[in-house]
């Protein structure tokens, strides 16, 4: 028995030193628990819903689990667990987060789905387009297609001066709201909308101002994301004139400080009760 105890002791010691490299290397290596998972990769076929759309989420780390919410809330490990492609048929906000027992949880990744807006009869761009990023001209913002994170994908209009457009609905409509989508990619000097001014006309000739409650939280670090401004309208109107101001002075922390920023917009969604 004594011999057995000695052997077990030797085995335990040996077991603790089987990896020779471990025993001679400095114990300064980074620990898994100090590292955060990257955000789950979210793939969506389209975010403007006519009938339905699909979302897939992945991370590529063994034993990582992805959880999600559909109410904009922060996912926890008690939220719905992502298991397979999700079919989306209603507008909403899907938020994903990855968890793993060895790592810090990821940050959240959110995708917003929009109901398809009304078809716009006549959309005129009053200001001049930049030659580099004209998108597909006047149709770009009302073609029911959203741009991706790649600002060169042809779905984006990029400007460095105020953008002005006039929309003629050709008949009186009750517009419930307007969604204006834009891109933030500070590394490419693309910053959020600075200001929005809207005027509406019931008779096509005389315009009145529509109050727009819009504010931006100043950015303090580099970021890339799709964003959206939702503007309640609830007015009867026939024409609309919209002026969007780009960021006129890039903040101090950025290498482009003091310069005007790019403004990249894609889809404008005009929401009525009918659509």
């Amino acid at each position: 028995m004594r011999m057995l105890i000695i052997i077990l002791g030797v085995v335990m010691l040996y077991s603790c030193n089987t990896d020779k490299k471990d025993s001679v290397e400095p114990k300064t290596f980074l620990q898994s628990k100090e590292i955060q998972l990257a955000n789950p990769k979210i793939e969506v076929d389209h975010v403007i819903i006519d009938s339905s759309s699909l979302i897939t989420a992945s991370l590529g780390v063994d034993n990582a689990n992805i959880f999600y919410t559909i109410d904009g809330g922060e996912p926890t490990q008690k939220s719905k667990k992502y298991k397979e492609t999700i079919v989306v048929s209603e507008p909403g906000k899907y938020t994903f987060k990855a968890f793993h027992e060895d790592f810090k949880p990821s940050e959240t990744e959110t995708v917003t789905f929009y109901k398809k807006g009304m078809d716009v009869a006549h959309f005129s761009i009053i200001s001049s387009l930049n030659e580099q990023y004209p998108g597909q001209g006047e149709n770009t913002l009302v073609n029911h297609k959203k741009g991706s994170l790649n600002f060169r994908d042809g779905q984006w209009i990029g400007v460095t001066e105020p953008f002005i457009a006039e929309i003629d609905f050709k008949q009186k409509i009750v517009l419930e709201s307007l969604d204006i989508s834009f891109l933030i990619n500070t590394n490419a000097w693309i910053f959020p909308i600075q200001n929005i001014t809207i005027k509406i006309s019931r008779d096509r000739d005389s315009f009145e101002s529509l109050p727009v409650d819009f504010s931006n939280t100043p950015l303090t670090q580099d970021i890339t994301r799709l964003d959206n401004v939702h503007i309640p309208v609830l007015k009867e109107l026939r024409k609309m004139r919209v002026e969007i101001a780009n960021t006129t002075s890039i903040p101090e922390w950025h290498q482009g400080k003091g310069n005007p920023a790019w403004l990249f917009m894609d889809e404008w969604i005009f929401n009525t009760k009918k659509n």
Partner: peptide
């Protein structure tokens, strides 16, 4: 036999509990 049975258990336990080098 005891050593063979014990070895992987302790080797695994050591790495699991004491070392989570990334």
């Amino acid at each position: 036999s005891a050593g063979m049975l014990t070895l992987p258990m302790y080797a695994g336990a050591y790495r699991f509990d004491m070392s989570k080098d990334l």
